[in-house]
Design a protein around this nucleic acid. Structure first.
Length: 279
DNA sequence: CCTGCTACCTGATGGC
DNA sequence: TGCCATCAGGTAGCAG
């Protein structure tokens, strides 16, 4: 599910809903969501704590608490659902096929924030500080921050022999791109995803840098309008298809040159690109 | 250190 | 209709 733009839109929508509120109780309904931590530990550390702030780091969502922080990662399918009060939660949460599958519930007094992931890839963990979380401390540059300069991007490219697609997916270098927006960025930059990062010429590096920023900003704009509505159990981002130029378009005509969009496998995942204009 | 592969889970979809 | 294979917006862990 979510890459940087989706998580950023979630952070912005969630911030006014929970900042300053106290977690009355944290219930771990599916222990796997807390792994490798113990569910009781998560419940104990998160319970009775006030939420001081909400931020995004890479694809992670971080809730700053009075002591430590809650670190959420949605992986492929995770999401948040809001229940108005305990009654609605009782009626809807974990009621079999009809209900909403909730893994972790944060009870906030007049509402319950549910972390939802049927597939159980997503995680909710408590850490004494964000630097203590291995995934967070290893994150590279945030591509929407001022730190993401052409110079630093060029230096990262030069230091890697990996194919561009794998390079862009590596969260230790640039944090936040996933399978969709890496493919989209390469399309906009007219670069073949199989090219080695350190063989990219300066003008091409410049194009890719611009493309990454442009793609993420456009997606964030789309994800923010309309803003996520956690109150609907099946809310999801609308209209993303219309901003996608290449992802998921195998066999269709390239929107730039009419070439046929190809799908290949890289690192066990699908990459979509145009063999004709991406070189 | 760097890179590439697999496991981890569940559900939806499409072909036979 | 059922059954099987394939695919899904991610990352940790491990081997070479």
């Amino acid at each position: 599910m979510p890459e940087l733009p989706e998580v950023e839109a979630v952070a912005r929508a969630l911030r006014p809903m929970v900042t300053g509120r106290r977690i009355r109780r944290c219930r771990v309904l599916h222990a796997i969501a807390a792994r490798p931590h113990r569910p009781r530990e998560l419940a104990a550390k998160a319970g009775q704590q006030r939420i001081l702030g909400v931020e995004r780091m890479g694809k992670y969502l971080v809730l700053r608490l009075e002591k430590g922080c809650l670190v959420l990662h949605f992986r492929l399918d995770g999401q948040l659902v809001w229940f108005d009060g305990g009654g609605e939660f009782q009626r809807k949460a974990n009621r079999g096929r009809e209900g909403v599958h909730v893994d972790v519930a944060l009870e906030l007094g007049d509402g319950v924030l549910g972390f939802v992931d049927r597939r159980h890839f997503g995680r909710v963990q408590w850490w004494p500080a964000s630097e203590a979380c291995p995934g967070l401390s290893a994150l590279g540059l945030d591509p929407l921050s001022a730190d993401f300069t052409q110079e630093r991007f060029a230096a990262l490219l030069k230091a890697s022999r990996r194919p561009l697609k794998s390079f862009l997916l590596d969260q230790k270098r640039i944090a936040g791109l996933g399978n969709i927006y890496s493919a989209e960025s390469l399309w906009h930059a007219r670069l073949d995803p199989r090219r080695k990062a350190n063989r990219v010429q300066p003008a091409e590096a410049w194009r890719l840098h611009k493309a990454v920023v442009k793609v993420l900003r456009a997606a964030l704009e789309c994800c923010s309008n309309p803003a996520p509505d956690f109150r609907k159990a099946d809310w999801w981002f609308q209209g993303l298809e219309k901003i996608l130029r290449v992802y998921g378009r195998e066999g269709q005509a390239c929107r730039r040159c009419q070439g046929k969009i190809a799908r290949i496998e890289q690192g066990g995942r699908s990459t979509f690109f145009c063999r004709r204009c991406q070189r």
